[in-house]
């Protein structure tokens, strides 16, 4: 059996950037890049790559193609999925992609997927750690007209179908869909494998295919945002400490419970 998988992966700011180094420019409503801290592949997207590699290995053949949209890729960062074992990579790199909203990203990805040809499965990270919107996978499946299964913790491929265990707060649900399908994954699918020294050296001989929007036949008009960001700021957090003193421990507990109820916490 052979299975062809497309993994959508996003380059994001390193979520482990120290909060002291994180700043936003409210005037232009953008996060200010931090000097000296390179970006990373979004964590859930790495989980998606891991899931794709496991599915390909279980199937005994096929391809894993990684697809990404951005305006300025850092190549040694983006090549990580190739070093992990993906077969090929398509990067849509265009200045017009600098501030794409979810709809614009969906338009670019769906055009690139259509151009890439037939596929059995699209895997996406559940959400990206920069904006945490989780919009793109849903929009992409809608645009491509294929089923969308979310928060997969386990994926089983059948003859023409896929069965997914979707994480829920109190357990999991089991879904089945026909192929082709789009599946989103999170960290419950398993830790992404390390790129080995051999994998890194092999990946260095693979050149990602780099496309512009015009290569996909997309115009600037189609990138117009459907959603406007009205404000961007770092919320001010304040910590207040109140010492509750009662006559004894039981009384202190009772007073604490009253306080918590007033605050609608319990």
């Amino acid at each position: 059996m052979s299975i062809n998988i497309i993994v959508c992966a996003k380059q994001v700011m390193d979520p482990e950037t120290p909060s002291s180094a994180f700043s936003v420019d409210s005037d232009i409503k953008q996060v200010t890049p931090v000097q000296g801290i390179p970006p990373v592949v979004n964590g859930f997207c790495e989980n998606a790559v891991e899931a794709a590699l496991q599915i390909r290995e279980a199937a005994g053949g096929g391809t894993v193609t990684v697809l990404s949209v951005g305006n300025e890729f850092v190549m040694d960062v983006m090549k990580k999925p190739l070093s992990m074992g993906a077969d090929s990579m398509i990067l849509i790199q265009d200045q017009l992609c600098e501030n794409l909203d979810a709809l614009g990203t969906v338009n670019v990805l769906s055009a690139a997927i259509t151009r890439a040809g037939e596929f059995d499965l699209i895997l996406c990270g559940q959400q990206a750690s920069d904006w945490d919107n989780a919009h793109v996978p849903l929009g992409l499946s809608e645009t491509l007209g294929i089923p969308c299964l979310t928060e997969a913790k386990n994926i089983e491929i059948g003859d023409d179908s896929v069965t997914v265990n979707s994480s829920r707060t109190d357990g999991y649900e089991v879904f089945e869909a026909n192929l082709p399908a789009l599946i989103t994954v999170n960290n419950e699918i398993g830790e992404p494998r390390y790129p080995t020294l051999r994998g890194i050296m092999q990946a260095s001989r693979k050149t990602p295919e780099i496309l512009s929007l015009s290569d996909l036949g997309l115009s600037e008009d189609q990138m117009a945002p459907a959603m406007a960001l009205s404000d961007l700021y770092i919320p001010v957090s304040e910590a207040q400490c109140e010492i509750i003193e009662g006559e004894d421990d039981a009384d202190s507990g009772r007073l604490l419970a009253l306080k918590l109820r007033e605050a609608k916490i319990i």
């Binding site: 040694d76 090549k79 260095s204």
Partner: peptide
């Protein structure tokens, strides 16, 4: 070893 390879290796 290329710079790209080195960066990936160090990162790994």
């Amino acid at each position: 070893t290329s710079e790209d390879e080195r960066k990936q290796i160090v990162s790994m």
